[in-house]
Design a binder for these strands. Structure first.
Length: 275
DNA sequence: ACGAGCGCCTGTCGGC
DNA sequence: TGCCGACAGGCGCTCG
């Protein structure tokens, strides 16, 4: 579910606070509770519960789709996967269905992880690199240039869509933003990465940056019952729009399956010339 | 070095 | 109304 812009939005709320709650930064952990043990990837629950109390939140950042909460000793890493969500609230608030774990702070704040599908994961580690070390470039970093993208595309011969969604190739793209970026760049999702020209790579680079930046500007996309408040879904060109008119040319958007994922594209704007 | 299939889970929606 | 399959923002595994 959440892709880079949704994760960034959640991160910002934790880091800077919201109208309702202040930033988590500076808070000291009082205690933690785990309601669904499999949400915790590492360490074992007992370790987790004893290591956390007393640690202070030093900072909160994002890498790809990971939320990294730097503590005085360790780092807390959260991956939301398909349906995960993090919220801050007062400790008097009632728990909600699907709450999987929570951390209470000595200042009365509570961080809660809600995850209907139970795919989300949490790690408490000394070295975050052990978890996120294999991630590809950060798409909004200055270091991620059009020529780097072109070069990396030519390093493999894969269908472009699954490659863009491979977190080792590029960190943060998911199903929605990939479909939107490919449409904006006028590239067919099945196109082989090694056949993307320099000009096409340049278009794709600009499209990736645009959809991610616009997604962040609009606080992500709200699709289901989670991630309320985002607005990116209002400007989808292709995603979940099968049968509707392409906003560029008016042709009916089509759906196909690529790499086991529902894939939306315009057959006219994104023709499949080469395979 | 690839892609396909599947497991992990719960909820929603459309068709019959 | 109720049941049943398809599908959903992700990712790691095995198997050709």
């Amino acid at each position: 579910m959440p892709e880079l812009p949704e994760v960034e939005t959640i991160c910002k709320n934790l880091r800077y606070g919201t109208p309702e709650f202040p930033s988590l930064v500076g808070s000291t952990v009082d205690n933690a509770q785990v309601f669904w043990a499999r949400s915790l990837a590492t360490p074992a629950v007992g370790d987790f519960l004893t290591r956390l109390p007393g640690q202070v939140v030093r900072g909160i950042k994002r890498r790809g789709k990971f939320i990294i909460c730097n503590l005085s000793q360790d780092a807390l890493l959260v991956h939301l996967r398909m349906s995960g969500d993090l919220r801050v609230e007062a400790q008097a608030s009632p728990l909600a269905p699907h709450d999987r774990w929570m951390v209470d702070f000595t200042n009365g704040l509570r961080l809660v992880f809600n995850d209907a599908r139970k795919f989300g994961r949490l790690w408490l580690v000394n070295d975050p690199q052990s978890i996120i070390g294999g991630l590809g470039p950060e798409p909004l970093d200055e270091a991620f240039t059009a020529s780097l993208l072109h070069q990396r595309l030519h390093a493999s011969r894969r269908q472009i869509k699954p490659l863009l969604m491979d977190q080792h190739f590029l960190a943060g793209m998911g199903n929605i933003y990939t479909d939107e970026a490919l449409h904006r760049a006028r590239l067919n999702p099945l196109m082989l990465s090694s056949q993307v020209s320099e000009e096409e790579a340049s278009r794709l680079w600009a499209a990736i940056r645009w959809v991610l930046e616009e997604g962040i500007r609009r606080n992500g996309a709200s699709i289901d019952w989670v991630y309320r408040g985002g607005g990116f879904q209002n400007i989808f060109c292709v995603y979940k729009r099968a049968g509707l008119a392409c906003p560029v040319c008016g042709t009916a958007i089509q759906r196909m399956v690529v790499g086991q994922r529902g894939t939306y594209y315009c057959p006219v704007c994104q023709p499949n010339h080469r395979r």
